[in-house]
Design a protein around this nucleic acid. Structure first.
Lengths: 342, 342
DNA sequence: CTGTTAGCGCCTTCAA
DNA sequence: TTGAAGGCGCTAACAG
């Protein structure tokens, strides 16, 4: 025999109080049943479970996390979802499956002035409640007094403060420029990344090192900031490519920048790689879909994400961890580079 | 003159109470200042703001959303972060920038038995609190009584219940199979997708339609389920390709499946496209990085995401919206297909 | 075994 | 202009 009860009364969510009322028990009892705590009579338990089922009740992540600090959710903080961060996300997701943790990726999507400090702000808003630990992607400042375990991917500065995962940016950049040098290029421009990121500074270092090792003085007019952004880099590349003595090759600090360079070259009627060689950095999936496919320094993006998860899980278990993991990058030669013409 | 106060007392987060105490005012006053409500003396306001700054206070998303329903956060619910969902994320992210909304992508990462119903569960856990609206990616069941606006991408069934965004799956599949037919293939296998998704059923319909239109009877032994998964599809493809009268071409229900087919073929020593033609569906970025690059039906993934955002924002504003948007797909011919050999 | 009490951090009346 | 009281949904002590 069934009693007729409205499944979902009114607009709002089904709360624990609704369940308690429908089952004729108190709220804490429902809580116990839902959380599998013992101290509940089998009969009561069954009755409550049935009501939970019927009403489609699900505990509110928010209310629960406000009360008890543990949530079993890992937060991933990014400024926005673009190829770099989404590739990391894939690795993180794969490495987290089966661990009992859920993933919550948060994008502030701030623009302009409010942007600096986003990582600290987001972390503050979510930590202590909602997430047990966080992976922060390309933070532009150190998050000193975080109240939860934090791992940074490709952070502001090198190994300091919190745990960090990155690749060997200097070596990668050097590989890229040496590749260009080996093809006979000597006027090699550099489109820099975001000045506030260590990766950007390190890639520039690699660029300068390689040139210096080849005995070539850096022409500072050939070094311009592209901020890791496509549009910005396209604009900068336009300037570079309309210089009287234009470069024959460009090392862009990441793939987005390289794609911007490609666009600028096309707009100017320059053929790649015949008239201009271009090298990127990261090897996001779309690097192989450009015309021509991009020669780039491949970062093991998914592995970076997976490593961050591994470190964070160890920290959450209270185990000791190395506070810095560095992965290797490899040059991936495609079709955007060719020998310099005489 | 400055009073000496510890910036962050102890381990936990800085709460509104900490700020109130440090500023010598009550909690509600701090709340008013933080939320720019009037009714606070300028002097008090200044003092509070200074303390907020100094302590690095940030309101807790959790506590706030528990109290007031509006959060300005859009939730994106996925099972996991894989190429399909991350591409959608990119489109969603781009379309949301500048709207004042933030993004919160949630992956349940459930495995096995707990999986069915994930969308309803996740939605329940987050809605009413935390998020104002949601975009659900490939839900396997209808989320009837959602308490917040919901848009589904590539959902269970066709236009019904909540708002939906998808592409013309039948036409896309037909294009794919007609391409194979045009190359002279007649024994064309189909690796199906997830049976609980409309997209999967519709792609199979397109497959059958195209074959029927060409006067070819479907050999049911050539139609097998790959669940949109790479490994599963590889296993199924192995069976298909070791059949006495093996197919000369395979239409896989998505790119992951197609990649699985590629692996199976390689393991069996079959060359693609010489011995076997393969077509996928989706055109995720990695489709062009396979060997050989994959011929596939391109869905405008980023546009799908952007459309979903547009619809959801309209719903959040209370404006009327079409409850179904269908985008076009286009066949992208790469190198995994070739004429059938005599 | 069950219910009562208290409080997580915040916001919203309403009274002082 | 400010503060005291109540409650959002939930869980952790305890008391019955």
């Amino acid at each position: 025999m069934q009693t007729a009860v409205d499944p979902v009364p009114g607009p709002g969510r089904v709360t624990i109080a609704d369940v308690a009322r429908a089952a004729g028990v108190s709220i804490p009892t429902v809580s116990k049943v839902v959380n599998n705590r013992d101290g509940v009579a089998p009969a009561t338990m069954l009755r409550v479970q049935e009501v939970v089922e019927r009403l489609g009740y699900e505990t509110s992540l928010v209310a629960r996390s406000l009360r008890s600090s543990r949530t079993n959710v890992i937060g991933i903080l990014v400024t926005e979802f673009e190829p770099f961060s989404t590739e990391l996300l894939r690795g993180i997701s794969a490495a987290t499956t089966g661990t009992g943790y859920e993933l919550l990726a948060y994008a502030g999507l701030l623009t302009g002035s409010s942007r600096p400090g986003w990582e600290r702000r987001s972390l503050s808003r979510l930590s202590g409640t909602l997430i047990d630990g966080a992976i922060v992607v390309t933070p532009s400042e150190a998050m000193s007094a975080a109240s939860i375990p934090v791992v940074a991917i490709d952070p502001h500065t090198g190994p300091e403060g919190h745990a960090t995962v990155d690749t060997d940016n200097v070596a990668g950049a050097r590989d890229a420029v040496e590749h260009l040098l080996g093809l006979g290029h000597t006027r090699i421009a550099h489109v820099q990344g975001r000045g506030d990121l260590a990766s950007s500074q390190l890639r520039e270092t690699g660029y300068r090192d390689a040139l210096a090792a080849a005995g070539i003085a850096v022409d500072e007019r050939l070094v311009r900031a592209g901020d890791y952004q496509e549009e910005r880099s396209a604009a900068v590349a336009h300037d570079l490519l309309t210089l009287p003595d234009r470069p024959t090759a460009v090392f862009a600090a990441n793939d987005s920048s390289a794609i911007g360079v490609l666009h600028a070259a096309e707009a100017l009627g320059l053929r790649v790689p015949e008239d201009l060689s271009v090298v990127g950095f990261d090897d996001v999936p779309q690097a192989s879909t450009t015309t021509p496919p991009l020669t780039t320094v491949a970062q093991p993006l998914a592995d970076l994400g997976a490593s961050a998860v591994t470190m964070l899980l160890a920290m959450l278990r209270g185990e000791p961890t190395s506070d810095h993991v560095r992965l290797r990058s490899t040059l991936r030669v495609r079709s955007s580079t060719a020998p310099a013409r005489a």
